[in-house]
Design a binder for these strands. Structure first.
Length: 276
DNA sequence: ACCCTCACCTGCACGC
DNA sequence: TGCGTGCAGGTGAGGG
């Protein structure tokens, strides 16, 4: 599921679902997800805490508690939050359960078990290794054209691989990296340092457009309410221009979209529009 | 400092 | 039906 726009949707939905709630108890059923902290310490640190504020840094979700702690969550590939009434049966792959003071449970589900959680003292959040190495927020003031130009000029990797590096450009994953390159009419295989100023400008705009579009577009289908009152938080479907469209006509020129494996990931592109 | 490969997991779609 | 293969929107450890 999650690249930056999806994480943003999860954050907004979580805010509405659990801000102001108190965690009555927390149960870590799959210890690996919060390692090295033990299930006992996990529940001890969270029990009684009030959820004050929910934000995001890149693809990390930050749940600020009144206990001067932050619960940081990365969904990785398949992590999901579900909010459900006490009596509802747990969904599949329910690995962490937060019992809230409104008689609901917030459940962290994760089919592939790649998701990770950390409990950090608020004062240590900035020094948390995973967070402090991240590039600037792509929709924030610090992510300037000059920043992108400088960053690209220093890399010998392909532009596609660079876009996936969260310490260089933040928020894109395999889908949006491909979509941004399509929009900018840049071949994914171009060495980052060889992009012209003009192409870098197009890429800069495309990154922001693709992310903004996805954040705006998904917002209407954000929550699926199940019969039993379960909220699948942040779920949405979206339209891709090239992703998962191998063999289909390019929306711009009609040529067949191609798929190749590059850097170990599927890479979709239009061989006519996206030439080197 | 950089960049590559692999490992971490389950489940699904596909071909035989 | 079953089995083997490849693939899935992400990262991080370990090595060159």
């Amino acid at each position: 599921m999650p690249e930056l726009p999806e994480v943003e949707h999860v954050v907004r939905a979580l805010r509405r679902a659990v801000t102001g709630r108190r965690i009555v108890a927390a149960e870590l059923k799959l210890p690996r997800l919060a390692a090295p902290i033990s299930p006992l310490a996990f529940s001890r640190k969270l029990r009684g805490a009030l959820i004050q504020r929910i934000s995001r840094r890149g693809k990390y979700i930050l749940i600020e508690l009144d206990s001067a702690r932050v619960l940081a969550v990365h969904l990785r590939m398949t992590g999901k939050f579900v909010s459900l009434p006490l009596e509802a049966t747990l969904p599949k792959h329910a690995h962490i359960i937060f019992y809230l003071d409104d008689d609901r449970r917030l459940v962290f589900c994760d089919q592939r078990q790649f998701g990770r959680l950390w409990i950090v003292a608020s004062s240590d959040l900035k020094s948390m290794a995973q967070l402090n190495s991240l590039a600037p927020e792509p929709l924030g003031k610090e992510f300037t054209f000059e920043y992108l130009r400088q960053t690209l000029s220093r890399s010998r990797r392909s532009i596609k691989q660079l876009l996936l590096d969260q310490t260089k450009v933040l928020g894109l994953g395999n889908i949006y990296a491909g979509e941004a390159l399509f929009l900018a009419r840049i071949s994914p295989f171009t060495p980052a340092s060889q992009l012209s100023k003009k192409r870098t400008e197009r890429l800069y705009e495309s990154i922001r457009i693709v992310l903004k579009e996805a954040i705006a577009g998904g917002s209407t289908l954000r929550i699926d309410l199940d019969d039993d009152g379960s909220d699948y938080i942040g779920t949405s479907e979206r339209f891709w221009r090239v992703y998962d469209r191998e063999g289909e006509p390019c929306p711009r020129c009609g040529a067949r979209i191609r798929r190749v494996v590059h850097g170990g990931r599927s890479t979709y592109f239009c061989p006519r529009c996206q030439r080197r």
